[in-house]
Simulated assay, not measured.
Amino acid sequence: MALIEVEGVHVRFGDRVVLESIDLAVPEGEFHGVMGPNGAGKTTFFNVLTGRVKPSRGSIRLAGEDVTGLRPQLIAAKGVARSFQIMTLFDDFSARENIMVGLPAFRVRGFDMHRAASADSDLAEQASDILAMVGLTDRADVRAKDLSYGDRRALEIAVALGQNPRVLCLDEPTSGLGTDGVQRLSQLVSQLKRKLTIVAIEHDMEFLFSLADRISVIHWGQVIARGAPQELQQNEWVKRSNLGRFA
């Protein structure tokens, strides 16, 4: 049984069909890439997967449990963490504090974030361990708004890892990164592979084809191709597009 099972997912906004009968199965430990042109429905699919959009029909199962239509907080509690194309960080908090306020042990407290983040040594230690995973140990006390763009990307992934997820969903993780930033992110994702199940939307095909175990191509709201990177090399749509040179 796959860890993630998406069956017949359909999304309609008014008269516009955005997703039409999407099927997807992701085994535990797989890095599954999602690619396609702008407007293909990729982000809507991610929003369905993480509870931000309820499908018109179809189902989503996580480890066999039907999570279709659950609120994002409930899906997150079941082990699905997500980064966003537009980063969502507390700019005036340090890197360590950003992770601390995202830890499940902190969120259940529901009181002053800054005071608690500054006072709890156990949470601080957990946050420091996560910062080490993403290579930000020496930036722990730097405010998020003072970090470089690449460091902010790494911090957002660190915040997601703080939720101790089973599934990590990455929405355009290389967006805005230069060559060095992409290389650093590639190293991080390589380290996370097999430890987590990863689903990533990505426009950087070189990044995706070098790391993903399998890739689904979405176009006009449908999966038009799926397979390992080397298999997609034979797909006619991929060969006709400017993506083919990376396959």
Rank of each mutant, 00 (worst) to 15 (best):
Ala144Ser: 11
Leu168Trp: 07
Gly162Cys: 11
Thr44Tyr: 05
Val6Gly: 00
Pro229Phe: 04
Asn98Ala: 06
Arg82Ile: 00
Lys145Leu: 06
Thr174Ser: 13
Lys145Gln: 10
Thr197Lys: 04
Asp180Ala: 13
Glu7Phe: 04
Glu172Ser: 14
Arg240Ala: 15
Ala132Trp: 01
Met100Val: 15
Asp146Gln: 12
Ile198Ser: 01
Gly176Asn: 11
Ala117Val: 01
Ile215Asn: 08
Leu177Lys: 14
His10Met: 07
Leu211Tyr: 05
Ile201Ala: 13
Thr44Asp: 03
Val11Ala: 10
Asn98Glu: 06
Ala116Cys: 02
Val48Asp: 03
Leu136Ala: 13
Val223Gln: 11
Ile99Cys: 05
Val238Pro: 05
Thr197His: 04
Val80Cys: 12
Ala77Glu: 11
Leu170His: 06
Ile157Asp: 14
Glu20Cys: 06
Pro104Leu: 01
Gln126Gly: 02
Ala200Glu: 12
Val9Trp: 01
Asn242Arg: 12
Ala95Met: 07
Phe90Thr: 06
Gly8Val: 00
Asp91Leu: 03
Glu206Lys: 15
Gly176Gln: 05
Asp92Leu: 05
Asp180Arg: 08
Leu49His: 02
Phe106Cys: 07
Leu185Val: 08
Gly69Arg: 00
Ala116Pro: 00
Val167His: 01
Arg107Cys: 12
Phe111Trp: 15
Met133Ala: 10
Ile4Val: 14
Arg240Lys: 14
His32Phe: 13
Arg143Thr: 08
Val80Asp: 14
Pro173Ala: 03
Val182Ser: 10
Glu125Ser: 15
Gly29Lys: 02
Gly51Trp: 08
Arg184Asn: 15
Ala228Leu: 09
Phe93Lys: 08
Arg61Pro: 10
Gly51Ala: 07
Asp112Ser: 14
Val199Gly: 10
Phe93Trp: 07
Glu172Pro: 13
Gln183Leu: 15
Asp171Gln: 09
Arg12Cys: 12
Arg184Ala: 08
Thr174Lys: 04
Arg166Gly: 03
Ala2His: 09
Ala225Thr: 05
